[in-house]
Amino acid sequence: MPRLRVTRRLFWLVPLALLPLPLYLDQYRQYVVNLMLMYVPVGIGFNVVVGNLGLLAFSNVAFFGIGAYTSGVLALKLGVPWWLTILPAGLMGALAGCAAGIPALRGVRLFYLAIMTLAFGELLRWVYIRWVPVTGGSFGMSVPPPSVFGWTLETEGHKFYVFLVLVVLMVVLTDRVLRSRFGRAFMAIKDNELAAAAMGIPTDRYILLAFAWGGFVVGIGGSMYAALVGHVTPIAFDLTELILEFAVIMVGGLGSLLGSVIGAAVITAAPEFFREWLGFQELLFGLLIIAVILFLPRGLASLLARLHPVFVDRYYRD
């Protein structure tokens, strides 16, 4: 279906259309938009493991934290410019991903895997709090203003452009991964692990790869966090944060790349809209999540998928 391929290219219009945004937004609104962008890789990585590979692993906040701390420590303690800390943050995230994936290789599944991966995130929080000389302990650390090629990103608008590039990169790369034989292996493992092995798929290797890629992408989100918020503390990577990240992929759509993007935008923007109903914000936010999951179990992305086949996530090129 060549028509479909042409329309997929139209997705490039989205980042292009966003380019003039900083001209219209004040610093606060721009900050919120940047926050949305940051949650895109955080959601994407989570979704690869939970939605595409199909394992109940809740270590996402660990990868996020590792990425943020890697950028923070490199920038603050070693004076590395922020842009050079992005890749190390991703790699540390990938390493954490591999570590979190080890119980899965030992055959741990479902609730057992869920609780073990949760414990992994809490274990890292303990490290952030206790390893004071490096992490700054409970109070965390202030990260120097982010810089790229010697330029300091002084305004939220500047950060926006760098974030946009990173987000597009992560979306495109993950799309490639999911539509390659890697993604097909994830799909097979998710549907029936034994059958996947019977079809010659080395399931252990691909489980580890999914965790590594998820950790990598989320780690880069962590690096963006360090640049955006400028302060890295253990409390930012607690269970509440994890639930928020889980809401991103549930509302957006499990196993959908497009869903991760939509979920990041909606979950970040919603509280801003609810701000007008002071005192009811949390209630409205909770109701929104419940409503989406109740009426759209496959998330908001499934709504778009109904509109046009271009929004359907495909593992095979047509």
Partner: peptide, 22 residues
Amino acid sequence: SQARDLFPDLTVEDNLRLGAWA
């Protein structure tokens, strides 16, 4: 196998294609 071990949530086509994965 005796249990057939298919990919139940995937289409016939995707099941076949996964047979050629390796």
